[in-house]
């Protein structure tokens, strides 16, 4: 059986959107198309976790079917990988719960089962998380206030690639920044299996004062539906061992 591919958008930002459509609405649209949206809000040292300006972070992830976390930049690496993995488990559990509902009836979920059965099912969920293919499109906010956070974001993304590439399943990463110079979003790295080479290409400079989060998510969503990506995975299937070569 060919295992499925999970699709995630990882949004890294430090503030509220201030241009274009409502990101929460776009996130829900993306979720309906099978894309999970995770959001990491970076706090400035003088911010607290109760900060209202980052309320949007939670809302986007909620309607995008993903996970959100507010974090000071020192803890970014660990958060990026744990949010991504948590969202994978959550998506898998979603699949499993829908199946369970069909068998056990409406409103029944994994957590309504007795602990022994729940344990057996969680083992399957873990297996799926370890072996499925994963595509992560990273969307980095490079508006002016992000300037001093970009080096940490770069480190965290390289770290994410170390974590995910320890899995049995395959990975694809792409990185985009927003706002772009002329477009809503601008490509930093095209789909590739690892992020250890981003050091030289990762932006050191910010790209403007506005934060068009909504339009950026919409663009990212379209990038997933491009056929070229599916072809790249198929190509590898026909030629196993390509990556080792």
């Amino acid at each position: 059986m060919r295992k499925g591919t999970l699709k995630q958008i990882l949004l890294i930002t430090d503030g509220c959107s201030n241009q274009g459509e409502d990101p929460v609405a776009v996130a829900s649209l993306a979720h309906q198309q099978g894309i999970t949206i995770n959001v990491i809000g970076i706090l400035d040292d003088d911010h607290s976790e109760q900060d209202e300006s980052l309320k949007e972070v939670e809302d986007i992830a909620l309607s995008g079917g993903g996970v959100s976390q507010l974090v000071y930049k020192q803890a970014l690496s660990q958060t990026v990988q744990s949010v991504t993995k948590q969202a994978m488990t959550q998506t898998m559990q979603g699949f499993v719960n829908r199946e369970l509902e069909q068998i056990l009836g409406k409103g029944q979920s994994l957590e309504d089962l007795e602990p022994e059965k729940r344990g057996e099912i969680m083992e399957v969920v873990e297996d799926m998380g370890e072996t499925c293919d994963l595509e992560v499109l990273v969307l980095v906010d490079t508006s002016a206030s992000m300037y001093d956070k970009l080096p940490t974001v770069k480190e965290a993304l390289m770290d994410l690639s170390i974590s995910l590439n320890a899995r049995i399943g395959r990975n694809r990463f792409a990185i985009y920044r927003f706002p772009g110079k002329r477009k809503q979003i601008e490509k930093i790295l095209d789909w590739s299996p690892a992020l250890d080479t981003i050091s030289s290409i990762f932006p050191k400079l910010t790209s403007g004062g506005v934060t068009p989060t909504g339009p950026a998510i919409r663009e990212a969503m379209y990038l997933f539906s491009k056929k070229s990506l599916r072809r790249s995975f198929k190509y590898e299937d026909e030629q196993p061992g390509m990556e080792e070569a």
Binding site: T89, Q93, E111, G119
Partner: peptide, 10 residues
């Protein structure tokens, strides 16, 4: 965090 707990129990 009930699913994480289940994983630990396993």
């Amino acid at each position: 965090k009930r699913s994480s707990m289940t994983v630990e129990v396993n």
